[in-house]
């Protein structure tokens, strides 16, 4: 595990309050596992001390470039959104376990389900699964058309179904409303989003093999502070640490 100073190559708003930040530096060479995250410092000389855990959305190993998508919601991420090309960002990582791509049968199809700012890690994951020869289908859920992002890019990897809560794009409703006909093929499920969505996905996909990635407010990001725990009935300790045991868990492994 390492701390890196990466240089910003772009930082632009791609949907309402959603920013795409591209960073470059030699540290990107280790960022090969989808579903891991970077613990990003907003910067020195700010009263925002804590790092922000941001999922890796894409990595270009040749260009030594990593892409992060984040929502500028609080003061810290708003400050991050004002950073200019050429500025440096202090990151720890890659952190967390990430999605296990190796353990999956190649003949299987994969259904990747993301909600809101949970969508980004599915992009790198989708690319990796495609490289393995799997058929990849996405269900992406957003609040509305204005909040949607990266849809064309996902379409380049596989069939992409969009849901919006207000019906301004795609199917009106939640990601689970688009799952029914797709789970009959018994795909492997990969899902990222708020806990309430993951819970609904797990119920809908009961009996299928799959993985979820959790979000939580974090302190250290490396397993020391015990801020981001989640209860589980499958381990003797009774809990998992989302930052270091996760953020990816098997469906059913943790209590949502």
């Amino acid at each position: 595990m390492k701390k890196h100073l990466l240089s910003i190559t772009s930082n632009t708003e791609i949907a309402r309050n959603i920013f795409e930040m591209k960073l470059t530096g030699p540290g990107t060479a280790t960022m090969t596992v989808p579903g891991q995250f970077l613990h990003v410092s907003v910067g020195k000389h700010t009263s925002k001390l804590l790092r922000r855990p941001l999922s890796i959305c894409d990595v270009d190993l040749e260009k030594e470039e990593v892409t992060l998508l984040y929502r500028a919601q609080g003061e810290g991420t708003k400050q991050l959104s004002q950073k200019q090309t050429g500025e440096f960002v202090d990151v720890l990582g890659p952190l967390g376990n990430g999605f296990s791509v190796e353990s999956i049968d190649e003949g299987k199809s994969a259904l990747l389900i993301g909600g809101g700012i949970g969508v980004p890690p599915l992009y790198y994951l989708g690319k990796k699964l495609r490289e393995k020869g799997m058929k990849v289908t996405f269900i992406l859920g957003y609040q509305s058309l204005e909040d949607s992002f990266y849809i064309e890019k996902f379409q380049e990897i596989g069939e992409t179904i969009v849901t919006t809560v207000d019906g301004t794009l795609g199917i009106k409703g939640f990601v689970t409303d688009a799952m029914d006909q797709l789970i009959s093929e018994e795909p492997v499920i990969y899902s990222v989003g708020p806990a309430v969505m993951l819970k609904a996905v797990e119920q809908k996909a009961a009996g299928l093999n799959g993985f979820i990635s959790l979000e939580e407010r974090m302190g250290c990001g490396i397993g020391a502070c015990f801020a981001c725990v989640c209860p589980t009935e499958t381990r003797q300790s009774g809990y998992v640490k989302i930052c270091s045991d996760g953020p990816v868990f098997k469906m059913g492994e943790v209590v949502l």
Partner: peptide
């Protein structure tokens, strides 16, 4: 001890609040 429910941390100006709960 399992400790407190989450969220257990909150950032504040030049500091943070924690309520881990002696896990």
């Amino acid at each position: 001890r399992f400790g407190n429910p989450t969220p257990r941390v909150a950032e504040t100006e030049s500091g943070m609040l924690n309520a881990i709960g002696l896990q």
